[in-house]
Design a protein around this nucleic acid. Structure first.
Length: 502
RNA sequence: GGCCCGGUAGCUCAACCCGGCAGAGCGUCGGACUUUUAAUCCGAGCGUUGUGGGUUCGAAUCCCACCCGGGUCACCA
């Protein structure tokens, strides 16, 4: 138990005890409300329009967010998930019931019934005839005027953030609508939503460090998936022509404004489509989702107005890098030469980095921050795209694109490589690069996946879409933590001063 | 991991430069008040100043180390 602030808790405890002594159950099992606070306000405004003296009755429930005592009259604001309603309590209306107020605190849940009216100040209020406690809060809510500012506590105790900062509700509601809209978009186009394993024997399908775990009965090491890609492609092999999965993937990497170790990704695969089809699909879907979730197809993000409507410009990666950095990738076919050239341009680059990673860095430094309006960066170099089909015209590049908006990467897609021999060769290259460039994350060879490919996979267009980043974009959040209810935070250490010591 | 910023009452923050009794608002407790809107008014209580060490007659304040958080760079989506 925390030593400090014990006095404040004691006050609430003694009120709790007093309620029990008075025969009041501080935690009753049920309470039937007839209206939410928003419904009650709507009920009154409608009635008032028809008859100015109307006083419809309602029973409402919520958490006390503010109390203004005036002696024999008290105003209590209660909040529920949709809104807020002012309760007006008078001793002569409540009689003995008015004394219940002595044992109520901010944060308690109450139920009240009475007639809806408009006060002198013009606020729709419930003139309470009966008041009851629904749940006593033994700890105080965050400060009512400044709200909860402590960023750490906002994430660790998100419920306090939700109590104090109503806009958090709005972001999460929008997140939910975005996910529903995305699902509907796929469902309406004949895609089947599937679930593939989270615990996998080979953490493949992306370039990322996995989380490791262990299955006891099988005595086997397993990993948390870093992507759903290879399982979904197995389904394409199996004849499920349009599939998608919306789920959590896990990457054992740093945490910052754009990264959380577990995040929600959508991957979809469509047989007989290519990356051009996927681009058209995505640039159609995003504005449709935005319209459904936010009511518009433009968003303001980090001081910019973004227009999400199709078509989005397509820029070849090679040209974008050339334009923004002055470096022509084709002049530097090997990693060492490219690293030298990058250092000339004041970009940190070493011989310990693969060519793919160096190019990725060039994109990150010179191109990505410039891509504010939705843009497709297309035709990625082969060595950084082991699962994408090479371009027939120029095998140094693949039929791959990434979509950017607000200076963030939000999607990654390609014409899927379906030649099993080429795929094996590409993944073997990844394994070789991994040995050569220690500490660099590269894709892994998954024999079982290659076996599936040998059974034949039709030409396929695949897409990976970062849902959290899409939510950031559509809610104007510049940190991923604000679109996750419970972002990863460090384990509170002993110095945090908030933990118990034996 | 590097660099920058921060940690003071339950909460939001002052005081720190330039060392000298640790303060305000909210919340809490007591009192007044039957139409308030961060209600108001009167009174009271509230502190291991993140932790440990050092300098000093004296440290929230200066110095060192560490812990925690945020930002940023590196890495990643």
């Amino acid at each position: 138990m925390p030593q400090r602030g014990e006095r404040l808790l004691r006050s609430r405890r003694s009120k709790l005890e007093r309620l029990i002594e008075r025969g009041v159950d501080p935690f009753p099992a049920r309470f039937h409300r007839t209206h939410t606070t928003a419904e009650a306000v709507a009920l009154f405004t409608a009635a008032e329009a028809a008859d100015p003296s109307a006083a419809p009755t309602a029973t409402v429930a919520g958490r006390i967010s503010r109390m203004r005592g005036m002696g024999k009259a008290t105003f209590v604001d209660i909040d529920d998930s949709g809104g807020r309603l002012q309760l007006f309590l008078r001793q002569d209306a409540l009689g003995e019931g008015y004394a219940l107020l002595d044992d109520l605190d901010l944060g308690d849940f109450v139920g009240a019934s009475g007639a809806l009216t408009r006060t002198k100040a013009g606020e729709v209020s419930l003139a309470v005839e009966a008041l009851s406690v629904l749940a006593k809060a033994l700890r105080p809510p965050p400060e009512k005027f400044h709200g909860l500012r402590d960023v750490e506590q906002r994430y660790r105790q998100r419920y306090l953030d939700l109590i104090a900062n109503r806009d958090v509700h709005d972001v999460m509601r929008t997140r939910s609508r975005i996910i529903s809209a995305v699902r509907r978009f796929f469902d309406e186009r004949g895609f089947l939503e599937v679930d593939t394993p989270v615990l996998v024997p080979v953490p493949a399908g992306a370039m990322a460090e996995p989380f490791v775990t262990e299955h006891r009965a099988l005595d086997r090491r397993l990993y948390l998936r870093i992507a759903t890609e290879l399982y979904l492609k197995r389904l394409i092999v199996g004849g499920m022509d349009k599939v998608y999965e919306l789920g959590r993937v896990f990457r054992n990497e740093g945490i910052d404004a754009n990264h959380n170790p577990e995040f929600t990704m959508l991957e979809s695969y469509e047989a007989y489509a290519d990356y051009e089809d996927v681009m058209r699909f995505l640039e159609t879907m995003i504005p449709a989702v935005a319209l459904e979730a936010t009511g518009g197809t433009t968003v303001s993000f980090d001081g910019h107005e973004l227009d999400l409507t199709a078509p989005w410009p397509r820029i070849r990666l090679h040209e974008a890098v050339h334009e923004h950095s002055g470096i022509d990738l084709d002049d530097y076919p090997d990693a060492a030469a490219l690293a030298d050239r990058m250092r000339q341009a004041n970009v940190a680059a070493t011989y310990a980095e693969s060519r793919g990673r160096l190019i990725d860095k060039l994109v990150g430094v010179f191109v990505e921050p410039k891509l504010i309006q939705p843009t497709f960066l297309v035709d990625y170099p082969t060595e950084m795209s082991p699962l994408a089909k090479a371009s027939a015209a120029d095998p140094r590049y693949t039929e791959r694109f990434e979509a950017f908006a607000g200076g963030m990467e939000i999607a990654n897609a390609f014409s899927e490589l379906n030649d099993p021999d080429v795929q094996r060769q590409r993944l073997e290259e990844q394994e070789a690069l991994r040995k050569r460039y220690q500490g660099e994350e590269l894709d892994r060879l998954d024999e079982d996946f290659l076996l599936a490919l040998e059974h034949g996979m039709p030409p396929t267009g695949g897409l990976g879409l970062g849902i959290d980043r899409l939510v950031m974009l559509l809610t104007g959040s510049t940190t991923i933590r604000d679109v996750l209810l419970f972002p990863q935070v460090r384990e509170p250490g002993p110095a945090a001063g908030k933990t118990t010591d034996a």
